[in-house]
Nucleic acid binder design. Structure first.
Lengths: 206, 206
DNA sequence: GAAAAAATCATGGAAAAAAGGGAGAATGAA
DNA sequence: TTCATTCTCCCTTTTTTCCATGATTTTTTC
C-alpha cells in the first residue's frame, strides 16, 4: 500500500495540531508539514510535492481560495481539499472552480477526513455530506448575475441612487433602472431593502 | 503549584484534538474532558467541576453563547473562555454579558492559550490581543437602537413597506416613517439600501 | 456567421421613501 | 415628581423607486 503525503495549510494552530493528532497514527498517511500562510506554503512546494493539501479557505487576511488557484496552476498534480468551518455554497463553488478536489468541514470526523484524503489522492472528488448537500441544493437556486448587474448591485448596496450610479458608470439612469429591475427579478426581491438583504445573505456582495 | 483543570466544548473534532495536543504536556494544566454539544457539556458538569471551560461560540446548530449563560447560572465558579474563529464585537460582547471571563481566537498561539487559562483561573479576565482591540474600537461606534427601532429595522430589511410595517405593528405609517428617519440618522445611512447593508454588517439584524 | 445574451436607452405613471418641520402621550429612572 | 427618552402622530414637498413595455446595439457563444 502506498503512503499518501499530506500537507496542511491553516492559520489556526489548533486546527493544525488537531489534524496532526487525528492523522498521526493513520496507516498510509504521512504528514509532511504545514503552513499558516500563502508564502510559506508556496515555499514548501518548491522543494516538496505532497499528494494532498488540506487547505483552509480563510487564512487570516489571506485567502485559501486564491492559494488553491496558485497551487493548481504551478503544480496540477497536487490534490487540494478545501477545509472550512463554513458550509456555504459560494465558498465551496469557488474552491472547486479554482481546482480543488474536495471540500471537508472542520467538524469532520477522523473517518471522513481519511476517506477524503484517500479519495482525492486517487484523483476523484470528495465532499463532506453536509457540503455535498449544500452544493446540490444551491445549484437549483443559484443566481447568476452579469458583470454589469453585479456592479449596479454593489453601488445600490452602497447607498447610491439611480442617478448617482448612472454618473458613476457613465450610463443613462434608465439603463440603471433596467438593471435594477433585473436584479429585483433575479433575486426575487420586493424592493431595494429586500434586494440588499438577499444580496448580502447570498454573498453576492460583501 | 496548583493544577488547573480544563474542559473543552467545541463541535470541531479537529479543534478539540488541537487543543489537546497544545495543552497536553503543559505544566499546571490538566485536561479533564471535552464535549461537542450543550447536553453532554451539562451532563459532564453534573459530576465534575473544571476550573476553566474553553467554549466555542458556535456549536453547529447550538450556541456556545447560550451554553455559557446556562453554565454560569448553574456553576458560577467555573470560568468560561469564549473560543471562536470570529473576531466580532457582537459575539465577544454577548459572551461577556453571559458571564464569560475571556475570549480567545482560534488562531491563538500555545502561549496565548495557556496565559488565558491561567489568567481566568485566577479570576481575572483575559482577551486575545485582536479581540481586545476589536472590543475597544467597537465601543466607540456602538449603535444603540430602541426596541421599536429594532422591530422596524427588521421589517424594513424583510422588504416590508412603511404601510405594511404600520399594519404589522399596529401603528400609524407616519410613526413608522419617524422610526425610519431615526434609523437613517443613527446608522448614518443615506437611504434604505445603505441602512440595510449597515444593519447587516453591524449585525444589528441577521 | 447566426443565434442568444447582455447592455444600452426611452416614456410615462403609480407607489414609496426622504427631508423638513412640529408636537403630545407614555414610560421609566433619579 | 420631574426629567429624559421613547413612542406616537401629522403635514408638505421633493426625490427616488417600481412597473410595464419596447427597441437598438454590442458582446458572447456555438
Amino acid at each position: 500500500m502506498m503512503t499518501t503525503s499530506v500537507f496542511i495549510v491553516d492559520d489556526h494552530y489548533m486546527v493544525i495540531e488537531g489534524i496532526n493528532a487525528l492523522l498521526h497514527e493513520e496507516q498510509g498517511i504521512e504528514l509532511c508539514g504545514h503552513a499558516t500562510n500563502i508564502a510559506s506554503c508556496l515555499a514548501f512546494l518548491k522543494q516538496h510535492r505532497p499528494d494532498v493539501i488540506l487547505m483552509d479557505i480563510s487564512l487570516g487576511k489571506e485567502s485559501g481560495i486564491d492559494l488553491c488557484k496558485m497551487v493548481k496552476e504551478l503544480y496540477p498534480s497536487v490534490n487540494v481539499i478545501g477545509l472550512s468551518t463554513f458550509n456555504q455554497q459560494s465558498f465551496i463553488s469557488k474552491m472547486m472552480e479554482n481546482g480543488a478536489s474536495g471540500y471537508v468541514l472542520k467538524n469532520a470526523t477522523k473517518k471522513e477526513l481519511t476517506e477524503a484524503i484517500f479519495t482525492v489522492a486517487k484523483g476523484r472528488d470528495f465532499f463532506s455530506n453536509d457540503a455535498f448537500f449544500t452544493l446540490k441544493s444551491a445549484q437549483q437556486t443559484e443566481i447568476v448575475l452579469t458583470r454589469r448587474e453585479k456592479e449596479v448591485l454593489e453601488l445600490i448596496a452602497n447607498g447610491l441612487t439611480n442617478n448617482e450610479i448612472a454618473q458613476t458608470l457613465f450610463i443613462s439612469n434608465t439603463t440603471v433602472d433596467s438593471h435594477r429591475s433585473h436584479l429585483l427579478l433575479k433575486l426575487q426581491a420586493r424592493n431595494t431593502a429586500d434586494l440588499v438583504k438577499k444580496a448580502l445573505t447570498k454573498k453576492l456582495i460583501s
